[in-house]
């Protein structure tokens, strides 16, 4: 029975029988609906917003992740591997894209969800973090610092804490800047917000937000200064593309004082917000939730 036979299915399809018309009509009507749902589903799946938790060791990244994930903290130790969790915004906070959406809209809950990835803060393990910086779905970076371990006055350990945080933050911001400048050829990457989450505000030794910001800016200025005066590294000049021979400086050509505002030129917007993961008194994590919600 070939396709051109009297009773082949092709002949039947083109015949004016009522059943053929019904089938055709059904296909014509249902196909767009089907395609719509399929596309919509996969789209929503793939583009779940993701956020990256960075920051020096002991800042409270893992604690924050567990708190946001399950609503209560658990004991933590130094992380060695990254971990991700899917988190739903609390019902009291609406994400930016949900602002005008009804709660009964099927896409509502999808847009309330995001993926948060915790990374190890130990100096030797930051390669994990830099691997993740160019993920497509990345909607923002949360850089956690221990606000109680930043003040210059307390001397000793705290000063190291500030230096370490500033160095790490400098490297992250520089990576983001490079991401922007190297992608200039096509349409540059979308803007990327950075939240500096000043943690441990429950402790009375914690610096206020303003000071956290200025101390970090000051210290990043120092880091940038010595980096610019430092030696070239062994990778430079050995790579094949001679274009990259120039070292890159963070912010305004590497001169003068560094301010987070300078990062806006490369579409990186920095906010400093205080909060605390553990401890009864303190602002908690409410403002950080709101920040996250604004980015989705």
């Amino acid at each position: 029975m070939a396709w051109h036979d009297q009773d082949s299915w092709l002949t039947w399809v083109f015949s004016p029988s009522i059943s053929a018309i019904i089938v055709t009509a059904l296909i014509a009507l249902l196909l767009p609906v089907l395609i719509h749902t399929i596309l919509y589903r996969t789209q929503a799946q793939a583009s779940t917003a993701s956020f990256l938790l960075l920051g020096p060791s002991g800042a409270g990244k893992t604690s924050l992740l567990t708190l946001l994930e399950r609503g209560s903290t658990s004991a933590t130790h130094t992380s060695q591997t990254p971990s991700s969790a899917e988190i739903t915004l609390p019902s009291t906070i609406k994400s930016a894209s949900n602002e005008y959406r009804s709660e009964n809209d099927s896409s509502f809950s999808g847009a309330q969800r995001f993926i948060l990835t915790d990374t190890p803060g130990h100096g030797k393990l930051r390669q994990f973090a830099s691997d993740k910086l160019d993920a497509k779905t990345l909607k923002g970076i949360i850089f956690v610092v221990d606000a109680a371990n930043l003040s210059k006055e307390s001397g000793g350990r705290a000063e190291e804490g500030l230096t370490e945080a500033a160095e790490y933050l400098h490297d992250v911001l520089l990576a983001l800047q490079k991401r922007y400048t190297s992608a200039k050829t096509s349409k540059g990457p979308k803007e990327l917000p950075v939240l500096i989450a000043a943690n441990k505000f429950d402790l009375f030794t914690a610096l206020p937000e303003k000071l956290v910001k200025t101390e970090l800016e000051k210290e990043i200025t120092n880091v940038r200064n010595t980096k610019s005066k430092g030696l070239l590294d062994s990778g430079i000049g050995t790579s094949d593309d001679a274009v990259e021979e120039e070292k890159e400086w963070l912010g305004d050509g590497g001169e003068g004082k560094f301010e987070f505002r300078q990062m806006e030129e490369v579409n990186v917007f920095v906010d400093v917000i205080g909060g605390n993961v553990t401890g009864a008194d303190g602002p908690g994590v409410g403002k950080w939730w709101e920040w996250i919600a604004k980015q989705i």
Partner: peptide, 27 residues
Amino acid sequence: SGVVLWSKQYVPVGANIVNSLIRDIFI
């Protein structure tokens, strides 16, 4: 990834003890 899944403390032991084990031995 750094989360304590289960623990039994007979006497409270500072988190820094296990932290330094992880740092020195594992990292």
